[in-house]
Design a protein around this nucleic acid. Structure first.
Length: 753
RNA sequence: GGGCCGUUAGCUCAGGGGGAGAGCACUUCCUUGACACGGAAGGGGUCGACAGUUCAAAUCUGUCACGGCCCACCA
């Protein structure tokens, strides 16, 4: 044994040195011979690489690393992969702004295309260059490759003990293959299906959106009171609406069956203002007598209640909003009067806002709007990344059954939630309320480009029309496929889009449809059965609470279908990192704190310490002061270790030499600490383990070390007792600290071993 | 409308039936040979409010208030 202790130990350079050493020694490689019961496997969240890196990411990934390091010290073979979520709309958007391009799938590939790297810095008037789908996808791939390098550098720097041979991306070939394979199996088992139905639609991104991606925002709006005219000449019926621009899409009025005011009108007809279309007055339980005038107009489609009414009462479809958010140029056929046509021409081609303003002017001019608009604020549905309210558009989409329309499945998924060990336990309530509140199946198709293609072709009939019920599916062995570029078996490319030929499904799957497979993907499902059996189902899913309804739930759904079990035993849910003013950090607010600068200033251990003090599930404010405390602690560990090893570096570990009462008392306390920390770690309460260890350690330094100093410098049995005790304490404390202060403890270990 | 979490020192938070705690900040002092990126001493709180259970409540129960969040509704 040789002890080489630096004259003046310091933290400078430890992060770089040890993270490089760990990688070159490959000490975090998974042991593929470990039996399942000796494995601890982690379904690492693949970070969205186009997202911003802030200390929140560093914090939650450190939590998982703390757990991983603890399990490894307990003797487990830790399976700790890393994925990159590069698939999806965030990347497309970044490519669009970064390179100043937009995808036009009608263009052909231009191999000589060179993007303008300065485009992102050009003035906003700069027009996006239209490029082919393939060119666009190439740029996506190029940008995410750069992003992934930045992420990996950060993860290594904060000391994540990831097995860097186990990386995957959600757009990579393995992910596309797994995602398409899982989809085809869902389809074969009737867990996936296609339907032409009204769906929530983002008019800017021009794609359908799933319920899980929708959020409410409070918006200014106003009630407009409109006069419908009774066909029997009995006068007017007044309704109130926040969306007068949809008047041309009105298909009925509706009131509650028990509402005496409107009972005489049920089954009679009224004429719409401006357009003179006759619509029925109907009764339905969902009509609320308390709202507005108690009678509402049903439009196809103003909100989700309209969809319910439309479906349950089998009303006609009279859509006027196009996929781009503008009023259709094509007038509904039912508008036949001259003034109806003229009034429609006034709004055709306008966007929703413009159309609303014009409709109100027209209504005021005809006197069919009663009084002034009443300003209100009301919740409006938005795509969570969107800028304009969602519209409801009828379109053909793919769905996966998630219990939203099926009580047996819903109950099965609620039971899966019961089976799962939630940390902290109260996070389960979010899962339950989400599953209980589902109002439809999971819409997985997106009318976008940078995603996993839906692996389906359709036969084209003799008239040249695709028959969406006549599907051609690829064999699993040829996956992944791109139906937009590849030809189904038995066809030639010349038959694409022609009568008797085929067309490829042009949609891609939503990114959650692929990331819901991370436990399968990371475990090499169907690719390495031996490995899969050793690591799946996995032990933990670490993630943030805000994606319980998306990532966690959808993963439970997919694993339930594919492997008939939970994908993991425990879900460790981390909180948010807030800025020092307790506001959520977000790029748009400009309050994002980047981790690298802080690591440069205080060291990775300081950041790990700060992260380790955050309790599972709790929001944490970013505090520079805590980094200073962490740094101070790491320095203290180095100095105390230098002292202990300076005295007892060459002593034995013969515990029988511990004879002094003071030493024995300290060792007894140490044993209690180990028990407490172990219990805490086993329950994933790393913050408590850290707090107990830290508290013991400072007391150890300030009191025990001072008391024992003179004896330790002397000779005889008392000195030996002190020396052996010091070695034991240091050895133990280094282990307890190692999951947190991984660099400082590794440094000390290297002096000693 | 239903639900979850929180409210303890100036700040960040731990504790969880019987002494009100830690770190930071603040005050005073100490270049003692592991460490000045250190150490010693100290001031500072009716533990959100009210009621109940109990010999005893910051801690358990209930009600309420405030803050944050989730779900539903959203004409």
């Amino acid at each position: 044994m040789s002890i080489r202790i630096p004259e003046k130990p310091g933290l400078e350079g430890l992060d770089e040195r040890w993270s490089n050493q760990w990688e070159s020694d490959k000490i975090y490689r998974f042991d593929r011979s470990a039996p399942r019961e000796g494995v601890f496997s982690i379904d690492t969240p693949p970070p969205t690489v186009s997202g911003s890196l802030h200390v929140g990411s560093a914090c939650s990934y450190t939590h998982t690393d703390i757990v991983a390091r603890y399990r490894r010290m307990r003797g487990d073979a830790v399976y700790y992969p890393m994925g990159w979520d590069d698939n999806g709309l965030p990347t497309e958007r970044r490519v669009q702004t970064h390179f100043g391009v937009r995808c036009d799938p009608t263009l052909t590939y231009d191999a000589s295309f060179v993007p303008d790297d300065r485009a992102g810095k050009l003035p906003s008037g700069h027009r996006a260059v239209a490029i082919s789908r393939r060119n666009f996808l190439e740029l996506c791939g190029r940008l995410v490759a750069e992003d992934e390098v930045v992420f990996e550098r950060l993860w290594r720097r904060i000391g994540l003990s990831v097995d860097w041979e186990l990386t995957y991306t959600t757009i990579g070939e393995r992910a596309r293959r797994a995602s398409q394979r899982a989809f085809l199996r869902n389809l074969a088992r009737d867990e996936a299906y296609q339907a032409d139905a009204p769906t929530m639609w983002d008019v800017d991104d021009q794609t359908a959106i799933a319920q899980a991606e929708i959020e409410d925002r409070e918006l200014e709006g106003s009630y407009h009171r409109l006069a419908f005219h009774r066909v029997d000449g009995g006068g007017d019926v007044h309704i109130e609406t926040t969306r007068p621009e949809l008047l041309a899409a009105c298909v009925a009025l509706v009131a509650h069956p028990d509402d005496a005011r409107y009972q005489p009108l049920f089954e009679s007809f009224v004429r719409t203002p401006l357009y003179d279309v006759e619509v029925p007055v109907l009764a339905h339980r969902l009509a609320d007598p308390e709202k507005g005038s108690g009678i509402a107009m049903i439009c196809t489609f103003g909100d989700t209640t309209d969809v319910v009414w439309w479906r349950e009462m089998q009303l006609p479809t009279r859509s006027i909003i196009e996929r781009n958010g503008r009023i259709s140029e094509e007038r509904p056929e039912v508008i036949t009067t001259d003034r109806g046509r003229a009034n429609y021409a006034e709004i055709a081609g306008k966007n929703v806002k413009q159309a609303q303003a014009r409709v109100v002017e027209l209504l005021q001019a005809t006197g069919e709007m009663i009084g002034a608009a009443k300003a209100i604020t009301h919740p409006v549905k938005f795509y969570e990344r969107g800028k304009r309210p969602l519209e409801i558009v009828a379109s053909r989409q793919w769905y996966i059954r998630n219990g939203g329309r099926d009580n047996d499945r819903r109950a099965a998924f609620l039971r899966r939630g019961e089976e799962l060990d939630w940390i902290p336990g109260y996070m389960k309530a979010r899962y339950d309320s989400w599953v209980e509140g589902l109002n439809g199946d999971w819409l997985i198709s997106r009318q976008r480009y940078f995603g996993v293609p839906i692996p389906v072709w359709y036969r084209v009939d003799a008239h040249g029309e695709p028959n969406f019920d006549d599907r051609i599916l690829p064999d699993e062995s040829v996956l992944p496929v791109d139906p937009s570029g590849e030809t189904p078996p038995g066809f030639t490319d010349a038959q694409r889009g022609v009568a008797g030929g085929f067309v490829g499904d042009s949609d891609v799957m939503d990114t959650w449809a692929t990331s819901s497979l991370t436990p399968l993907l990371a475990s090499y499902w169907e690719e390495d059965p031996d490995l899969f059996a050793r690591v799946y189902p996995m032990d933990i899913r670490p993630q943030a609470y805000e994606i319980i309804r998306t990532w966690l739930f959808s993963t439970v759904v997919r694993s339930h279908y594919e492997t008939d079990c939970l994908p993991w035993k425990h879900a460790t849910i981390s909180g948010w990192v807030l800025d020092p003013d307790r506001k959520k950090m977000s790029k748009s607010k400009g309050n994002v704190v980047g981790p690298m600068d802080w690591i440069d200033k205080y060291g990775a251990d300081a950041l790990r310490y700060w992260a380790g003090s955050a309790r599972p599930g709790a929001d944490t404010a970013f505090e520079e002061a805590q980094l200073k405390v962490g740094r101070k602690l790491a320095v203290k560990v180095l100095n105390a270790s230098k002292f202990v090893l300076g005295i007892a570096g060459d002593d034995s570990d013969d515990l029988d030499k511990i004879c002094e009462p003071l030493d024995r008392a300290m060792c007894a306390q140490l044993a209690i600490l180990v028990d407490e920390a172990t219990v805490a770690f086993e329950a994933f309460d790393y913050a408590r383990a850290l707090e107990r260890t830290e508290s013991f350690f400072w007391d150890f330094c300030d009191n025990y070390l001072e008391l024992v100093k003179s004896r330790a410098y002397s000779t005889g049995a008392g000195r030996d007792s002190a020396a052996v005790s010091l070695r034991l304490a240091l050895n133990t404390l280094l282990r307890l600290f190692a999951p947190f202060l991984s660099f400082a403890t590794e440094e000390v270990w290297s002096w000693w071993q």
